[in-house]
Design a protein around this nucleic acid. Sequence first.
DNA 1: CCAAAAGTGTTCATACTACACCCATGG
DNA 2: CCATGGGTGTAGTATGAACACTTTTGG
Lengths: 238, 238
Amino acid sequence: MTPRDRVLVHFTADLVILTIRGGALHVLLVERANEPFAGLLALPGGFLRGAETVRQAAERELREETGVDPATLHLEQVGVYSAPDRDPRPRRVITCAFLAIAPDLPVPTAGSDARSARWTPVDDLLGGATRLAFDHDQVLADAVEQAREKLRFSTVATVFCEPEFTISDLREVYEAVWGVELDRPNFHRKVTDADGFIIPTDGKRAVPTGRPARLYRAGPADVLDPPMARTARTRPRF
Amino acid sequence: MTPRDRVLVHFTADLVILTIRGGALHVLLVERANEPFAGLLALPGGFLRGAETVRQAAERELREETGVDPATLHLEQVGVYSAPDRDPRPRRVITCAFLAIAPDLPVPTAGSDARSARWTPVDDLLGGATRLAFDHDQVLADAVEQAREKLRFSTVATVFCEPEFTISDLREVYEAVWGVELDRPNFHRKVTDADGFIIPTDGKRAVPTGRPARLYRAGPADVLDPPMARTARTRPRF
DNA sequence: CCAAAAGTGTTCATACTACACCCATGG
DNA sequence: CCATGGGTGTAGTATGAACACTTTTGG
């Protein structure tokens, strides 16, 4: 082959930023201001610049969209999307998708890009009712599936929570991401027994009614072994 | 930002083709004929051309290097490597690494590219004794770790084997990839009980000494649940 | 005291570990 | 018959599922 066969491409990093709002998994979407797909909803993202790595580009976008220090969040690669027709512009655009996990954030800086950012329930999108720009429907589905698996084998669920959280908070993370109901007593034992998953603090948090819950913070472990079982509990009979 | 900030890059697909030879995990390496890194060992790979997807480029390279139909092998994405200095050429080159799993193949077509391909024991490389071109040491380490995890939760181990194989063949795959010794009786039960992992055939294979082993072929399942335990068996005391 | 949520104890089933033992074949 | 690797049985242990139960608060 000759070097002339080599395609020159643009490269982007796209972000699937997940959080939990009101017990449901949400993803941050932006309304596209420019062509292609102007007016359509899309994952936030942007072109690789200068001497950045792809990850650095993703971190820059994450900071721009959420205003949060990427070091405090969880960010991992999902994969490359390279279908030649995924972007209609003449110059090919290949993207690398990243999965970001964040606690419930205010949507602050619609600033820099003047694109309106909004949290959208993931369930509304996976059904296929709304179509996203580019191949972002597929990217979203892949990233959500990766997040679901990640929760089984790692302790990232704590990143969805505030710095101090109750065991019920943590359980609701699993229930929102997996869309199942988990057995409360068994979940409690599981996470308290797991080495380095959560660390008890002195504080407690009052609840609307009932016994106050102990507060915990994230522990040093990042792998969860044995993993969290994803089986739904049997629904209580009436 | 202006469109001028967007970097134009070349894109490659690099392959970590793993197989098992003589009970040890091997990877296919090529000696680079051209600069950069001429003379050094590297993972096979090549530039994205025309309207290919990255996966199609990987499949094309796989066919060129091994002469085998990619449809019969296992091929999955590992990730993107985009450090700006990973390739010294003035135009940036970003790569997407793929993990390929293959049965023991003859190294046929050193043909098209006139690069000498060779199977190399992975253990010799992970130690860091030999340095590979580009960031391929890191790519190899990531891909091998991905293969190790993949074996736990999927049935891909059968792809390392010939179409018909014995349970000992399959066990030796796990032992080679994981570098452990597994309990033979328990492994036997585990894989025969697992639904859709292996299907018995009518054949048997004579062994140098001892009872002939039943032959199996790969089953339809691709997930292995519950997963294979990675714990080494206690070494037999003498 | 009652409702509700936090947290603990107990039982049963399953699955894994270790290892004893039997089976089939070649020499 | 013996060595060797294939294959089965089984007892002890660990983990998880289900759910009864106790604890602690607000009203």
